[in-house]
Each structure stands twice: as structure tokens, then as C-alpha cells.
Amino acid sequence: MTTVVIADDHPVFRAGMVTVLSDLDGIDVVGQASDGEEALAVVAATHPDVVLMDLRMPGVGGVEATARIRVEHPDTAVVVLTMDSDDDSIFAALRAGARGYLLKESDGLDIERAVDGVARGEAVFGAGIAERVLAFFASGRTPASSPFPQLTNREHEVLELIAQGLDNQQIARRLVLSDKTVRNRVSDVLAKLHARSRAEMVALARDAGLGG
């Protein structure tokens, strides 16, 4: 029996997933969570084989929760189940340690295969995602290593510029973004790094070798 925890901030979607998975032989849903922090607590309490993890949740998001599960519960595999199909989200999740990546448009059979596959130690991706991952590695590139795997590529760029001493307006001009977008990115980075201030965020970044 493969035990599963579902982490998603939409209760209707969670209920639907419970219904889908409960109808499948060999899968037992042992817990649910509405954000990353709750997911970590539920995983610690239930020790599931697999977590189905949304990326965008309030508080601790799916990428950070995945990274922490990988460290704190290495026997639990994470399958990302999200609406986000952009490269930043995909490779942030993979760097964090996700063993699978599916879009929410996936049907029950795809989800069943992913749960079974990652429980056996495989890496499983939805068709469109698999093609992009394979194309990426076929190009000879490798994902950039990072001391902060929970951050997206754009958030890394913002953090690097913050560590260099740039203010929000300077970052906006450098990255050709609106001031509002930069403020949102800075807030996201603060939350993901659990930094209480911009100064603390700069200190963390410089300790990790950024801003040089």
C-alpha cells in the first residue's frame, strides 16, 4: 500500500484528489495540508511514501516545503501537482528534490502512474514536462547549482542584485521590470528565506557567496 499526503491550498481540489486516489487500488491517502508548513507537520506525523505538492500556497510554498522534506524525510518522495508550467517553476522544483512534476490537467491514470513510479524510486514527469526536461539536458546545459533551491531563477536574480546593494528601483531598471513586480519578488524572497528584514536577507545572500 502506497501512502500519500495531498498538499494544496484549494479545499475543493484536495477533496477531488482524495476521491480520485481513494478509488485506486494500492493507494491510501493518510493526510492533507493547505500550505507548506502544514505539509511538513503532516509528513512528520504520517511518514507517507509520496506527497502530492502544489507550488503556490500561502506562507511556506511548495518548492521550499519540497526542499525541507528532502532533507528531513528523505524516504518520502514529492510529486509536484501544479498549474505552473514555466521553466523557472519546473527547475526550481527539481533542484529542491521533487521526483515528479505533473500539471493539474493530468488525469487520474497519470497521477496514479506518478505516485506508483516515485514510490519505486523513479522520476516521473507529465508528457509536456518530460519533453522540456529532456530537451534541456540534451542541449548540454545543466541547471545552475544554488544555495537557495527554493527560489526561482528570477528570484535568484533579484537576490543577487540585492546582495550587490541595488535598491528596488535600480533592480527594476536592470531587469526591465515594474517597481511593483520587483517589490513582489523581494517579498517572496524574504518569505522563502525566512528573513525578517532586507538587511538579514543581504547577510544570508552574502554568506552564501552572492553579491561578489
Rank of each mutant, 00 (worst) to 15 (best):
E38C: 05
A39N: 01
L40M: 09
A41L: 11
V42D: 00
V42F: 09
A44Y: 10
T46K: 13
H47Y: 11
D49A: 12
L52G: 01
D54Q: 07
P58T: 04
P58I: 02
P58L: 04
G59P: 07
G61W: 00
V63N: 00
E64K: 15
R68Q: 13
R68W: 08
R70K: 15
R70Y: 04
H73K: 10
H73W: 09
D75C: 05
V78D: 03
M83C: 12
F91V: 00
R95H: 05
A96E: 00
G97C: 07
L102S: 03
E105S: 15
E105A: 14
D110S: 14
I111Y: 05
E112W: 11
E112S: 14
V115L: 08
G117P: 02
A119K: 03
E122I: 05
V124T: 09
A127T: 12
A127C: 06
V133G: 09
F136T: 00
F137G: 10
A138N: 13
S139I: 05
S139N: 09
S145D: 13
S145P: 09
S146E: 05
S146P: 05
T152C: 00
R154A: 08
V158R: 02
E160C: 05
Q164F: 09
L166A: 11
D167K: 15
D167C: 05
N168H: 13
N168K: 15
Q169L: 12
A172K: 02
R173P: 00
R174A: 11
L177M: 15
S178L: 10
